[in-house]
Design a protein around this nucleic acid. Structure first.
Length: 355
DNA sequence: CCGGGCCCTGAGCT
DNA sequence: AAGCTCAGGGCCC
C-alpha cells in the first residue's frame, strides 16, 4: 500500500507531540518525522508534510470491533463502496480521523483558550506555538486503563516498555516492521490467564501486576463493552465514580480514562505536575504537600473547568505537554536579550487578549 | 476527611 | 560502590 493523505494544516496537528507526549505509549519515531504504532489492531505509519497527514498501513489483524462499535457506532465499515480499495481507504481514513479527533477545529478552541487566561497565551508564545497542534487522542478503553495503571510512579520510557511487554504477552502479532515485532493490544476476552499476576511480576510490572490482574477481572464481570458504553453515555461525574470502583484506579487515573477514551473532554487529570502548574499560574495559595487531598484535587479541576470550559481537559493536555521536560526548549539557546524580547511580546499579547 | 507509610522498578545523582 | 530520591498514584490504616 502506498501513502494516502488527509488534508490537515500543520497548525491543526503536531504529530510528534500528540503521539509521544504521554497520552499513548504505543508510538515510536522510526526515522525523522515518521511514526509507527498500533491502534484498532492496525499497524500504522504516519508522517506529515506542509498541508497533509500521510498514512500507510503496515499490517493488521482482525479489526478491533470494540473500538469500531464504541467510537464509530458500527461493527463493520460501510459496504456500499464502489471498489474494495475505495472501501478500505474510507475505512482507514475514518479510523484515523476518529483517533485524532480531526472533526474538532483546534485553532478555534485555542483562540478561545487564549482569551480565557493569559497563561495559555504565555506558554504558546514561549514555545513558538508548536504546542497548539497537540491533539487529544481518542483511545481504546482497555488499552487506556492498563496503560495508566502502569503509569503510576513511573516515567514515559518505562511505561512504554511495560505496555509493549503486555501486548507481547497477550496480544496478537500483527507484523514485523523496522526490526520490531508489533502486537495488537488485547481486549479483556484475550486475558484468560489465572497466572497473570505472577507473569506480570516476572516482567517487572511490580505492584501494578496485582492491580492489572484484578482490574481486568472486574471489567470482565461488569461486561466490558456494555459497561464501557454505559460509561461513555453517563455524565463525567458518574463515569468517574464508576471507574473508582476498579482495583488500582484512583482519582487521577479515572480522570485520564474519562478524558482519553470515554469522550469526557472536560475531565482534568491532576497529578503532581498539574498541581505545580496550578500553583504557579492559577491558585497561588495552594500549599505544597506530598499527596494531593481530594478537596484540593476538586478545587484544581473546578478551576480549570471554569476557565477553559467543556474542552478543558484538552487545554490541560496542551499545558501538560508544554511542561514536559523532554519537549522543553533548551534554555541555553535563549540569551537574556532574546528572552526579554519574548517577555515583551507576551505582555503585549496578553494585553490584547484581555480586552 | 487528612496524612503518612507502604508498594515495585530503574535511572540519575551523590 | 551502595544508598538515596524521584517518577503522570493507589491502598490501607
Amino acid at each position: 500500500m502506498s501513502w494516502k493523505k488527509i488534508v490537515v494544516p500543520k497548525n491543526e496537528l503536531n504529530l510528534r507531540l500528540t503521539l509521544l507526549g504521554g497520552q499513548s505509549f504505543r508510538w515510536k519515531e522510526v526515522e525523522n518525522e515518521t511514526f509507527i504504532g498500533v491502534f484498532a489492531n492496525i499497524l500504522w505509519k504516519l508522517k506529515q508534510n506542509d498541508d497533509s497527514l500521510l498514512y500507510k498501513i503496515e499490517g493488521e489483524t482482525n479489526c478491533d470491533e470494540i473500538y469500531l462499535k464504541m467510537k464509530l457506532n458500527t461493527t463493520k465499515p460501510p459496504k456500499k463502496a464502489k471498489s474494495k480499495q475505495f472501501y478500505e481507504d474510507v475505512h482507514y481514513e475514518n479510523l484515523l480521523r476518529c483517533y485524532l479527533r480531526l472533526d474538532v477545529n483546534l485553532q478555534d478552541l485555542c483562540q478561545k483558550w487564549k482569551k480565557a487566561h493569559p497563561h495559555f497565551t504565555e506558554i504558546t508564545n514561549l514555545t513558538n506555538h508548536e504546542f497548539l497542534g497537540v491533539r487529544q487522542l481518542n483511545q481504546a478503553v482497555t488499552e487506556n486503563i492498563i496503560s495508566f495503571i502502569c503509569s503510576q510512579n513511573n516515567n514515559i520510557k518505562r511505561i512504554s516498555s511495560l505496555v509493549s511487554k503486555f501486548c507481547e504477552l497477550y496480544g496478537t502479532k500483527i507484523a514485523n516492521c523496522e526490526g520490531d515485532d508489533w502486537y495488537s493490544f488485547p481486549n479483556i476476552a484475550d486475558l484468560k490467564d489465572s497466572k497473570m499476576e505472577e507473569k506480570l511480576r516476572a516482567s517487572s510490572f511490580g505492584y501494578r501486576a496485582r492491580y492489572i490482574a484484578k482490574c481486568t477481572e472486574e471489567i470482565k464481570e461488569k461486561g466490558e463493552i456494555e459497561w464501557y458504553s454505559k460509561l461513555q453515555n453517563l455524565s463525567y461525574k458518574e463515569a468517574h465514580a464508576e471507574l473508582l470502583t476498579l482495583t488500582g484506579i484512583g482519582p487521577k487515573v479515572a480522570d485520564c480514562i474519562c478524558l482519553m477514551s470515554l469522550g469526557h473532554l472536560d475531565s482534568i487529570p491532576v497529578d503532581t505536575h498539574v498541581f505545580q502548574i496550578a500553583k504557579a499560574h492559577y491558585l497561588p495559595s495552594l500549599k505544597p504537600t506530598k499527596s494531593i487531598s481530594s478537596k484540593v484535587y476538586e478545587e484544581i479541576k473546578d478551576t480549570f473547568r471554569e476557565i477553559y470550559g467543556p474542552y478543558a481537559g484538552w487545554a490541560q493536555t496542551i499545558m501538560f505537554c508544554a511542561d514536559l521536560k523532554q519537549f522543553q526548549m533548551p534554555k541555553k539557546n535563549l540569551n537574556t536579550e532574546e528572552a526579554e524580547k519574548i517577555q515583551q511580546k507576551i505582555k503585549i499579547e496578553v494585553k490584547i487578549t484581555e480586552k
